[in-house]
Amino acid sequence: MNDTLPLLDTTQLSPMPAAEPAKILLLYGSLRERSYSRLAAEEAARILRYLGATTRLYDPTGLPLPDAADETHPKVAELRDSATWCDGFVWSSPERHGAMTGIMKAQIDWIPLNMGGVRPTQGKTLAVMQVCGGSQSFNAVNQLRILGRWMRLITIPNQSSVPKAYLEFDEAGRMKPSPYYQRIVDVMEELMKFTLLTRDIRDDLVNRYSERIETAAEVSARVNQRSI
C-alpha cells in the first residue's frame, strides 16, 4: 500500500509517539474490486500509520457466513487473531438498503465477547465510517455504534460518512482533497488519542461488579464441592 500522504498539512497534524505503537485493525464491508469502503479504510490506515500506529487491514474474501463453519476455519482464525492482537478498530461499511452490509455484519458476528478467557473487543476503541452511493446518510454508522456498544467497545464520538463515494476517489484509488477527507483525518486522530489514553487501563474499564460477584460465587461453589 502506497503510504504517501500528499493531502496532509503536516504543520497541523503531529505523530503521537508511544513506547508501544497503537495497534489498529481495520474492517471493511464490500468484496467489490473497486470497494469504496476498502479504499476509505486504506486511507484511514495511511493516516494512522503517519500518526504512529501499526495497522492490519482484514480482507473478508472467503470468510464463511456465521454458523456455516467453525472457529478453526482459516479466515475465522485470522480475524479472531487480529481482533485479539489489536488495541482498537476501524469499521468501514457501505450503506446498502439503508443499513450496513451483510459482509460487515458477518465479520463482527464472528468476533466473540469472550474467547478462552480473552476479551477480543472489551475495553478497546472503535471508530465507525461509512460510504454512500448517493446523498449523505448515517444509517450504517448508527448501526455500527449499536454493535460497538454491544461488543463493549469505546466508540469514539467522531465519525465519517462519505456521500457519492464514486466521486471522491481518483483512478488510482486515492481519496481526493475535500472536507470528507479532512473528516477521516479528524476521526483517526481522535481514535489515536482515545486508544493511547485508555489501553493501559483497559482491564479496569471492563472490571464489572456483576461479573466479580458471579466469579466469587463460582469459586465458592468449587471450594465447597471439594470439601464434601
Results as ranks from 00 to 15, higher is better:
Y181E: 02
S137R: 14
K124C: 02
Q182D: 15
D203K: 05
M115H: 07
G102E: 03
G117C: 00
I103E: 09
A172E: 15
V185P: 13
N207P: 00
L144I: 09
L197W: 15
N207H: 11
I201A: 13
G117L: 08
R208M: 15
K124E: 10
W150Q: 04
Y181C: 01
G173W: 02
T101E: 03
E189F: 08
R149E: 11
I201Y: 14
D170M: 10
I154D: 01
R208F: 15
Y180K: 05
K176C: 03
L197Q: 14
M115I: 01
K176L: 15
L144N: 07
S161A: 14
K193Y: 12
G148F: 09
K193T: 13
A127K: 07
Q107F: 00
D203T: 00
R149T: 14
L153M: 14
L126C: 13
T125W: 12
W150E: 04
P157C: 06
E189L: 04
G102K: 04
T155A: 00
Q136E: 15
T195Y: 14
I184D: 11
L147E: 05
D200S: 14
T195K: 12
I146D: 04
M100T: 08
M115C: 01
D170P: 08
L191W: 06
M129L: 11
L196P: 01
K193F: 14
Q122R: 12
G123F: 07
N114K: 05
D200W: 07
V131W: 11
V187P: 05
N158G: 08
V131C: 09
S135P: 06
T125F: 11
Y166I: 08
P163K: 06
P163C: 03
Y180H: 12
G134I: 09
R174I: 01
Y166R: 13
I156S: 06
T195P: 15
F194G: 08
Q143H: 00
D186M: 07
E171T: 11
G133Q: 06
Q159E: 14
T121S: 09
V118R: 00
S210C: 09
L147A: 03
S210H: 05
R145W: 04
L113E: 01
Y209V: 12
T155D: 01
R199Q: 13
W150K: 01
E211H: 14
L126G: 00
K164Y: 15
R202D: 10
M151Q: 04
M188R: 04
